[in-house]
Amino acid sequence: MSHVIPYVAAIHEAIREEMDRDERVLYFGQNMATSPDDPFLQAFGPDRVRVTPISETAEIGMATGAAMAGYRPVVELYMAEFTLVAADQVVNEGSRFHFMSRGAVSVPMVMVAGYGFTCGWAGQHTGSLYGMFMGVPGLKVAMPSTPADAKGLMTTAIRDDNPVLYFHHYLLLLTEGEVPDGEHAVPFGVADVKREGSDLTIVATGHTVHTALAAAETLARRGVSVEVIDPRTIAPLDVDTILASVARTGHLVLVDQATRHASVAAVVAAEVAELGFSSLEAPISMVTALDSSIAYSQPVEDYVLPDEHKVVTAVEKTLGLAPVPA
C-alpha cells in the first residue's frame, strides 16, 4: 500500500515518524517552529523542536554535541550554501570524532539542506555543492530524487550512527509521487535503477534523474534503450551497480547539475575508467553544468545547466547515432 504526497511532505513524514518512534530525535533550525501552532512543536514540544538564531556554526556544532551526548539531532539548514558558513563543523569536526576516538564516541546527526534552486536565485543560492562533501571520511551524503526516496533516505539518515548530509533538491519539493505506507527505509549505498535499458547507461542524481528519464523516454521512441541509475547516496557510492550496468550496455553517459570537476559524474567516470574500462565501447560522456556561476536571468541560467536536449545529444554521440532534428 502507498499514498501519493509531495517530496517535501515525504521528508517531513519521515522526520515525524522517527520522532514518534525515538524520543532521542531532535529537530531544530532557523525560521521553524516559531509559532505555537507549528505541527512539530505541537507534537513533540519545545525540548525537542526549536528555532535557532542564524548561526550555522552553532547549529551544526550543537547537533554534533547533542549527538555525542546520546541524541539524534536533525538540523534544518535550508540551503546547501549555508553549510559553507560552517564548513569546519560539516567536514572537520563530527565526521572525525568516531575515528579519532577509536569508536569511543559517535555522532548520529542529520544536516538537511536544499540545493540547485535554479529558478532565478542567481549566483549564491543555486549551487550543486555535494561533490565537495562526497570524499569526506566519516560523512555520508544522501540525495533523493523521488518522494519515496526522500522519505526512505531520511528514515535511514536519522537511524544512521554517523553524520549525514541530506541534500534535497529545491526544484523537486512539490513533485508528487507514491510513498510506501508505514515504515520505509531506503538503505544507503544501494543505487536504484529508475529505468531499465540495454543500449546505454545513464547515471544521474537528484533533479537530473528526471532530466535523464525524460531523455530516455524520447530516445525510446527512436528504439534506443537507455538504463537510468540513481545512486541515491553519493557517499557511500554504489559503484558495483553502475559497473554491472555498463558491463551490459557498454556505454555510459553521466548527468550532473554540478560543475564538471566538482561533480559526482567525474568520480563515477574515474571509477568506471579504472574498474570497467574493458566494458566500454565508446568514451564516457559527462553532461554537467558548465564551469560558471548560475546567472539570475533565465536564458543565461538555462545555458549552463544540463537539460534533456544536451543529454539526448550526448547519448547520440556516445552510440554513434545520427542526430534527429528537433
Binding site: T57, G61, M62, T64, A67, Y71, Q89
Partner: peptide
Amino acid sequence: QHLPHAAGAAWAAQ
C-alpha cells in the same frame, strides 16, 4: 570549534 559542541551537549543535559 568545540564551543558549540558544549552547547549541544548542554541542550542534551537540559
